[in-house]
Design a protein around this nucleic acid. Structure first.
Lengths: 126, 126
DNA sequence: TATCACCTTCGAGCAACTCGCAGTCAACCG
DNA sequence: CGGTTGACTGCGAGTTGCTCGAAGGTGATA
């Protein structure tokens, strides 16, 4: 069982975001303790992780909510869920490629600045 | 020389976003033609590309603007720019790792749905 | 001449946070 | 026993970064 603070640290989200997601109903069957504090069990943490990953694929919170509802409905929705996941898989792969290009671009810039800095230092030593 | 539409297609941004960035001053020395239409030369496209990459690293538009201003100021700001790029390089690398984890997570889900679907089909053929 | 296919500005709207306040509760400390 | 600390609560307002659409200008084509 985790508190908001713990689960936020665990999943690298802010506490605000965790509350925001739970308030939006993105974590089914979230328990509360006797003081009304949110209690995250394994399942709740997994739902949050799922939200996080889908969110980072570019999926909107409403669509994520729809997907989570489908998950609650049992085997009848498996093919629909498969369609959704396939789309997000494509999105995730495209993003991975883009992330690689980004790293290459920025690495090159950083290296050029570094070389320039070295050159400037050697031309004008202290 | 590119129009808004062309540069948007080239960099995979919306036309709205391209105009938004230029209006925010994120593309130095952007030229206009005799009808006041934005004209993107090689340099302008490169600035936009730079904005796009930094943006996707999680950098805010204000910070990007600051960086671009530093670029305009010449060699005196090289070390400052190097610091910025190093930070963004770290961010980009962290993101790449996260993107890999995301792909793995979603791939696994999609595969499980696929297997489940196959199993359901074989148990209940048409 | 009119209908396109572009472009322009501008202001409103929206998603997803993000922040901070006021208040509750439990635990510890002098 | 009072006070402080710290983590939680809800809630409403603010921010960022788009996103959309209206209203209008220009030039080429039918």
């Amino acid at each position: 069982m985790y508190t908001v603070k713990e689960v936020a640290a665990l999943l690298d989200l802010t506490e605000h975001t965790v509350r925001y997601y739970t308030d939006k109903g993105l974590v089914p069957n979230l328990q509360r303790d006797e003081h009304n504090n949110r209690q995250f069990d394994k399942a709740a943490v997994n739902w949050l992780l799922c939200v996080k990953h889908l969110r980072h694929c570019g999926m909107g919170l409403n669509d994520i909510k729809t997907y989570i509802s489908l998950c609650q409905e049992g085997d009848a929705t498996v093919s629909e869920r498969y369609e959704i996941m396939s789309k997000q898989q494509a999105a995730a792969l495209a993003q991975l490629e883009e992330a690689k290009r980004r790293v290459a671009y920025i690495e090159e810039k950083a290296n050029r600045y570094f070389d320039l800095l070295m050159k400037m230092k050697s031309e004008n030593p202290i």
